[in-house]
Amino acid sequence: MSLAALSHPEQAVAIEVRGVSRTFTTAGADVPALRDVSLTVAEGEFVSLIGPSGCGKSTLLRMLAGLDQPDRGTVSVEGDKVAAPSLSRGILFQDHRLLPWLTVEQNVDLGLHKSGLTTQQRQQRVSDLIALVGLAGFERAFPYQLSGGMSQRAAIARSLAPQPRVLLLDEPLGALDSLTRSKLQTELLRIWKHERITMLMVTHDVEEAVFLSDRVVVMEPRPGRIADIVDIPLPKPRHRGDPAFVDIKLRLLTSLEVETDPPANIVEH
C-alpha cells in the first residue's frame, strides 16, 4: 500500500492535448469543430467529456484514437505524438461495430494478432475477457444473435483484448436502454478498477459522467472549446442519491445550461 502511494501514479501523464484546433469543411463552409483545446489526463484517471452536440468532443476522441488529425496543436498519449491508430489505445464506439461475420470469440480475438501470444494463450485471453464482460456461453454467437447490451459488452472485451494503456469511449452506452445502461456503468467501473487503465469518455449523460469520472470536462460548441473542468472527489462506487452526488450533477447541469446559446441543444434529459 505504502509503495503504491509513494509511486504517485496520478502524477504520470497519460493523455496530453495541447492547443488543438480542427476545422471541417462541409458544403463549402468552414465549421470550426475545436479551437485551441488543451487537456491533460493522468494515468489511471477516468475523465468524461460532456457538452452539447457540435462541441467537438467526439472529434477530440477520434484524434486521440488516431482516426483524425488536428489542424494545429498536438495530441500525445504517454509521451508519444499520435499519428495513426494503435493497439495501445483502445476505442469503444457508440455503435458496437462488431464485425457481423465473426463470432463473439473471433471479434474479441481481432486485436490480438500483434500480441505475441501463442494460440493457446490467445484463446485463454479471449475466454477470460468474455467472462470479464459477463458473456460466457456466448463465445460462438454471431452479433445478430446478441442484444444491444450484450453486443456492447462484446465490444468492450474486444477493445480490452490488446491490453491498451488508454481506453477511449465514444458515448459507449448512448444507444442502450436506461436499465442496461446503468448496469453497464457499474460494469465499466469494475473493469476500470480491474484493468487499471486510463479512460476518457464522451457522453451526453451527466449522471453517467458523475457516476464514473474523477473529473468532468464541460465543453461548449461553435467553436468547440473547454468551458469548465469539474473535480469529483467522491469515493467510488458512488450512490446516485447521495446529496454530494446530486450537488455535483446539478452544478454540471447548470454549467451546461448557462451556455451563450439558447437552451435548445442542451443535454438530452
Binding site: 488516431g66 482516426l67 495513426a84 491508430p85 493497439l87 461495430r97 464485425l99 481481432l110 494478432h113
Partner: peptide, 19 residues
C-alpha cells in the same frame, strides 16, 4: 465504421482485405 475497426486494430492491408 468497419474499415475504422480495421485501422484501430492495426490490421495490415492484406488482413483488412481478408477479414
Amino acid at each position: 465504421p468497419y474499415l475504422e475497426v480495421g485501422r484501430v486494430m492495426e490490421l495490415s492491408r492484406w488482413q483488412t482485405i481478408r477479414r
